[in-house]
Design a protein around this nucleic acid. Structure first.
Length: 522
DNA sequence: CCAGGCTAAACAAG
DNA sequence: CTTGTTTAGCCTGG
């Protein structure tokens, strides 16, 4: 009933972050290069509809206008964007079912075979097949058949077999609107109260900035239920001296160059800002603030963890809110980020540059025992970098073409792949103790994957089954090697704190699922 | 600071 | 499947 019908867009914006991982330091090995290259590389290129979309080097992509100076980037890119031919949605009435034609379909089938052959020797395969030699095949065929009869798909193998279970699963993971609505009200209220309290009733934290809503809920990647929320509360600091703590480039000590910041009281004699002292007082303030809200419960402090976790119940479901203290650093990113964020081929150099101009964040997170000392600084007073704001923006503006996933653009399955992996991971964690693995590992894998298959058509939604297979293979590859580089800080190996056995075991489980049509989803 | 506009995603209906 | 509506989140402009 309104006349609110937009038209085009050009503004996209970035912001904020998230937090998560936890890992140990230590060097890695060599740049990880994975098999996907050969397998995926070619078929994709031959894919027909690419010619259309990738017409030119129109990789400008959107560009989220961020702070003022960034808007310019946005406009610029918009201008340089040649205005792509229009998209298919119109052209082919039967859209997806008819999509994968000749060449592509064949290649895909080949690939499937390849997958099977090249890895068929592995133990699991043998094990699994021992009792059910043909069952996977049979199931696939059966499903394929029914699928064909219904849609008369041109590309049976992958589409028919695994896709239906994947779509069904995605459907189950969808968050209900009512649940979301109820939970978000409750969450927003408490966040508001906390921020107000910090501003009005505290000295140390009165300069707190707008909360950064980060993490999967705010990235539209939350699955199953809106029961986990992450918010970072940024404290500005005037001028700081950041020094690496240990050698992986993810942890730093922060020295306040004398100033009359409200945070000065957390300095030691050397001017080092003590993460532990600051977090302690922050926690106390949050505790004070939520006291009157009887329905909220504060969970116990976890060692090394930057979050103050609050829980409550909404419709008899427990939901939690992680409130994370952080400091905003305006200066340029640490040198360790130099070789990270290699998104040039995917999102473009301008976008990369734009991100690099943003501030970065530090959260009071450490690993191991807090009493460990390095250059006179205790581990518990160490900060870890966070680029959650960039992660969030990338996930939102994840297409090579600016119209990816927008109306009139190509619909991609990047996020769907990530949701499915997260789900798979959590199911496997229920079954076995894979405690050390977290969704940040999945997210990082997706970011890397997007950098090696950069075109939106590489992730076309009609290719979900295939994309997910490759995506999982990559993840398995990282696990096998025990090396997964932090997307922003390549020197940090996100798997360094996890045993080889554990990694390999998880890889096996995933492979097992992949080969068998994801029985765990059923 | 707020109101209003916009988007993505859920959802409803045909 | 397509189309239209609703909503939380986020942005902008006044």
């Amino acid at each position: 009933m309104k006349e609110q019908k937009p038209k085009k867009r050009q503004q996209k914006n970035p912001t904020h972050n998230e937090e998560k991982p936890s890992v140990q330091s230590f060097q890695t090995e060599k740049p990880t290069k994975y098999f996907p290259q050969e397998e995926i590389g070619k078929p994709q290129q031959t894919s027909r509809d690419n010619t259309r979309v990738s017409v030119r080097g129109t990789k400008a992509k959107s560009c989220a206008g961020r702070s003022k100076s960034l808007e310019q980037f946005a406009e610029e890119t918009v201008k340089t964007q040649p205005e792509i031919p229009k998209d298919k949605t119109k052209a082919s009435p039967k859209t997806k079912t008819a999509k994968p034609h000749s060449g592509k379909a064949k290649l895909l089938e080949q690939m499937v075979e390849e997958l099977k052959i090249t890895e068929a020797e592995t133990i699991i395969e043998a094990k699994i097949c021992a009792g059910t030699m043909k069952s996977p095949e049979e199931i696939r065929k059966k499903q394929q058949k029914s699928f064909e009869s219904i849609t008369k798909a041109c590309e049976p193998q992958l589409q028919g077999g695994t896709d239906s279970i994947l779509y069904t699963t995605l459907d189950k993971l969808r968050i209900r609107r009512n649940e979301r609505s109820d939970a978000s009200k409750v969450i927003n209220d408490i966040i508001k109260s906390i921020v107000e309290h910090l501003k009005k009733n505290t000295v140390s934290f009165q300069e707190v900035q707008e909360p950064l809503r980060t993490g999967s809920y705010y990235e539209n990647l939350k699955i199953s239920s809106p029961d986990e929320f992450d918010v970072m509360l940024p404290m500005p600091v005037a001028r700081v001296d950041i020094q690496p703590f240990r050698d992986d480039g993810a942890f730093y000590s922060v020295a306040l160059k004398r100033s009359k910041s409200p945070l000065s009281k957390f300095k030691d004699e050397a001017g080092i800002l003590s993460a532990s002292k600051m977090l302690k007082e922050f926690r106390e303030e949050v505790t004070k603030c939520v006291k009157p809200f009887k329905e909220w419960v504060l969970t116990r402090k976890k060692k090394g963890c930057p979050a103050v976790t609050l829980t409550t119940e909404v419709n008899s479901v427990t939901i939690s809110l992680d409130v994370v203290l952080c400091i905003v650093v305006q200066s340029s990113w640490p040198p360790f980020t130099k070789d990270g964020l290699r998104i040039e081929g995917w999102l473009g150099t301008k976008v990369r540059q734009k991100y690099k101009y943003l501030p970065y964040y530090l959260v009071p997170k450490y690993e191991g025992r807090g009493t460990m000392e390095c250059d006179g600084v205790l581990a518990k007073d160490i900060w870890r970098v966070s680029f959650s704001h960039v992660e969030k923006d990338i996930l939102k503006n994840h297409g090579s073409e600016k119209t990816c996933c927008e109306e009139g653009g190509v619909r991609c399955c990047r996020k769907d792949c990530l949701k499915l992996l997260k789900h798979l991971l959590s199911l496997l964690k229920e079954r076995e103790s894979f405690d050390k693995f977290c969704s940040y590992h999945a997210k990082t894998t997706l970011l890397h994957a997007c950098c090696s298959r950069t075109k939106d058509t590489d992730w076309h939604t009609s290719n979900l089954g295939h994309c997910f297979q490759i995506f999982l293979k990559e993840f398995e590859g990282y696990l096998q090697k025990g090396v997964l580089h932090n997307f922003f800080i390549p020197t940090q190996n996100l798997l360094s704190g996890i045993s080889d056995e554990s990694c390999k075991s998880l890889a096996q489980c995933i492979r097992n699922e992949r080969y068998n049509g994801f029985p765990i989803f059923k």
